[in-house]
Amino acid sequence: MPAIEARALSVGFRTERGVVQALSDASFAIERGETLVVIGESGSGKTVLAHALMRLLPRNVTLAGEVDLEGQPLLALPEDEMRRVRGRRMALIPQGAGSALNPVRRVGGLMLEMARVRGLGQGEAREALDGSLRELGLSFQQVAERYPHQLSGGMQQRVVNAMAMVGEPSVVIADEPTHGMDPELVDTTAEQLGMIARRGAALLVITHDLRLAERLGGRTALIYSSYIVELRDTAAFFSQPEHPYGRALLGALPEHGGVAIPGVSPELTQLPRACAFAPRCPARFEPCDEAVPPMFPLPGGGEARCYLHA
C-alpha cells in the first residue's frame, strides 16, 4: 500500500474571473521511503497540489478525485480528524518560509507549540527541534528568542524545514525547501531530505532547482498548466524527457542551448478541451486539438500525457 495516493485529483477556484482550474486529473502514488519531485513553471499548480493533499484549501475551492493516506481516504474525513492528520502523519514545508512564520511570535515558542501538537512533551520537543536544527547548522538556542524578521531568509527556511522533520510523519511535502539558500546549504538540505526518505517517509518535493531534483532521484512529475504531463523515473526524465513540453523545458536550459519556448501558457480560467500545450507544441498533430490526452504508459516505465505515445 502506498503511503499516499492521489487519483484523478482536480482543484478549481471560483473567482470573479471564472473558475481557475489549478490542478487537473492528477494521479500518482508515493511509497514509503520513495521520493517524488514535482517541477513545472511558476503558476502551473504545484503548490495547489501540495495543499490539496493536505486539504489546506480556501473556501472558494471545488475539489474532485480521491486522496488516500496509507489507504485511508482523506477527502471525506471530517475537518476535526483531518486536523489530527496534519502535522502528525503529514508534514508540510511551505513555500516562502518568511511569510510562513508568524511575525509577532518568537521562533522558539512557535516551534515548540507546533512540535507539541504532534504529541511530544516539552523536553522531547525541544530536543527533537534542536536535533534537526543542528543538522542544518543551527541550534534551538540560537533562534528561540528571536522574531522571524530577525532571521535571514536561509535561516527562516531551515527553521521551517526543521519543524516539519520533527516527529515521524509518514508523508513529508516540501514546497521549495531550498529557497534563498547558498549551494552548501542546498547540499545539506538535500542530504536531510534524503534522510527523511531513508527513515521511511514518503517525500514529495516541489522545486524550481532542476539540479536538486536530479540529485533527489526517485521519480519526477512535470506539471504544465495544471496537468501532470510526465511522470517518470527522475534519472530517465532528465536524460530524455518524453513529453514535448519536458523536452522544450530542458532545451531551454542554458547548458542545452537556451532556446526559449515560443508562446505563452494558457489562462487557467480558459483551459482548452484539448492538450493544453498543443498551441506551443512543435509536434502538434490532429488528435491534440480534439480532447485532453490521458496519461499514456511509456515503454521504459512511467507515463506521459501526449498522443505521441498513444
Binding site: 492528520v85 496534519r86 502535522g87 511551505p94 511569510s99 512564520l101 508568524n102 507546533m114
Partner: peptide
C-alpha cells in the same frame, strides 16, 4: 501564510 502553516502543522 503563517496561519495556513500553523494549520498545516495541525
Amino acid at each position: 501564510d503563517y496561519v495556513r502553516f500553523a494549520e498545516a502543522q495541525g
